[in-house]
Nucleic acid binder design. Structure first.
Lengths: 203, 203, 203, 203
DNA sequence: CATGAATGAGAATTCATTCAT
DNA sequence: CATGAATGAATTCTCATTCAT
């Protein structure tokens, strides 16, 4: 009556498969990854894999969700500086524009671009966009309300621009060799721009 | 001695196939378009299609090349304003940010993203990036030399940022409904960004 | 844990497919046999067939290997007569020249002839030739050392001639109706010749 | 009313195509040669090619016929030595076993082997076999009648063996590298074989 | 006669997904 | 639950041959 394997074990197995899948998707991209690739990387049987994830899409979405939960951790109400919070959001903990890109990002782009005609996928992409948008929008709105940021520009528009810029960088980074994109320099330029748009003077 | 059809006809046929292919690629995207789709849309037989284009990649690249030749027409040496030239380059003839997106753009993104692990495709993408980069870089360099633009930022960096922004917009536009991306508003904001980077005061 | 079917079953399935394939290859020849032919003869699905053999070449080579293992059974060190051993090698158990030809032989010839420009296939053919050559060469060498055979001719040359003769017979047999080739009579003549070349007097 | 091009011209054109086709067949083999290969090598249009030869088979058979007419020229009645005549037949003018192989031979084998299930082709092959057989058989019969050759063996049987040997050599030569087949040595050995079978003592 | 565009049957191969054990 | 054999729809690409001009 009791399950043969512990719930813990199941969770672990699932996590292992996901981790293996991540590597495979990073290597081959979304479209060119086959379930067999995943099976082999995760050392699961075909049936086993389908036990945890009912198809390739489901599997990939699980990876997408994973990424999400990590990011939603910040719910700070009061911070000394919204600007530094924004920088952290953009470039990670240290807030300086030299962070690595998410290696799965190219596959994520693929997933949404190739699936843009699929209603379900489209809706999912939109939801994710909205979530990202909210985060930046909220932050900027608060900064504006607190007086730290100028409200010259609509907060949502700035938020959208941030995402557009990030997406553009991710795209170019996916396609071009590192030395072509100049991630760091472009990021620095974009930061200057944000400073201007939000009227932030400090470094 | 006389071929069955005139050279004109051949050219036309090829153009027709390309046009049909364009529609199909716009509708289904690069990955999900099959040669059969194209065959049917262009009303060509299998063999006929392969007579003109040896495979899907070749066919799509023909479409990519088409786009290229159209753009290279402008080689103005002396202009009254580099800024307005830049605006024209970005937003078309009238230079105002309300242009339509190239409907094939999403498929182009697909083409390069899904092919990022293919040496040939990668090289091709890089070449195209370089070509685009040169155009903007040249323009900005001239503007800087003429004193119209500030040289606070490296011209190439600004050029890269322009492409990044365009790519980001194209990407979001491919995935999200029109009303979400706010093309026009973001473009206007981006123009401000450029004004800041190039120290251009005029409207 | 337990697979759907026993290992035995799998082996059997593979053997069944091979057997069906053999019949199909015998009937249509190598080039004109399609995987569909095999599928239907073996009553396997397309995917099923490809599960066992990754392509036509692989499938055929499996048949070739099969034939090989059967022959390698003889490793007799001391025999009362190398001549009778040679006859057995040539004509099967009873050592008399009235054996049937391997019905797959024509397809084997096809396989190697049509593939003569393919590096892989060529190498494989050479390997097989060498293996056959070794067997006859060894036998003759021993016979010569033991004094049973004359060493007037180089053992390897005689061995090559044997293979040439066999190949010639196989070829003619593949192309001509049985009554034309006169397998038995030609074989008898060839035996006489070998007797002369090896100086063997007995019947 | 009079033909636009001279009959001579037509003949020449045909001969040119055949010569080009020969080279192509030598290079790719019968099965893997396409009409396009021939078109390009002969610099004929598709339609032009089909004007002269109604299909690939027809084209190849024309090449086969070509070879035939050249050889059938000798019909000497009285010769001083049937043995030397036989040697000439086997090894060309000088009658010594160091002749080159017909480079088209591998393709000829292919043609007949892959076509062995086609009634027409089979009949054609048989006819050719018979023709070859007759030549050798006649020669040997005469030699036997004249007393130069022993009639221990049936002349036809010996003739068949000659063809078998030639076919075997051609086959091995088609598949194996030159140094493996040892054409010359095997030929010399085969001459000994014939000497035995025909009881000819002289060199 | 010559041309070469067009045809379309057919071959190989891939892969997500199912399901009997 | 796990297994992995089996399925078969889909897709790409090839090539001999035809035929309108």
């Amino acid at each position: 009556m009791s399950p043969r394997v512990s719930k813990e074990h199941l969770k672990q197995r699932r996590a292992d498969i996901l981790e293996a899948a991540r590597q495979v998707f990073i290597e081959h991209g979304y479209e060119h990854t086959t379930m067999k690739h995943v099976m082999e990387a995760a050392d699961v049987s075909r049936g086993g894999l389908y036990q945890y994830f009912s198809n390739k899409e489901d599997l990939f979405e699980a990876l997408l969700e994973e990424g999400l939960t990590e990011e939603t951790e910040d719910s700070l109400e009061k911070v000394e500086s919204y600007w530094s919070l924004l920088m952290q959001l953009l470039f990670g903990e240290d807030g300086s524009p030299d962070t690595e890109m998410d290696p799965l990002a190219p596959s994520k782009l693929e997933f949404f671009i190739t699936g843009r005609n699929d209603e379900r996928r489209r809706a999912y992409g939109e939801k994710r966009y909205e979530m990202g948008l909210r985060i930046y929008d909220d932050l900027i709105k608060r900064g504006q309300k607190s007086g730290e940021f100028s409200d010259r520009y609509d907060s949502e528009l700035v938020a959208r621009s941030i995402i557009t810029f990030i997406d553009g960088l991710a795209l170019d980074h996916a396609i071009l060799p590192d030395e072509k994109v100049k991630l760091k320099e472009q990021s620095a330029l974009f930061v200057d721009y944000l400073k201007m748009a939000l009227d932030v003077s400090s470094s």
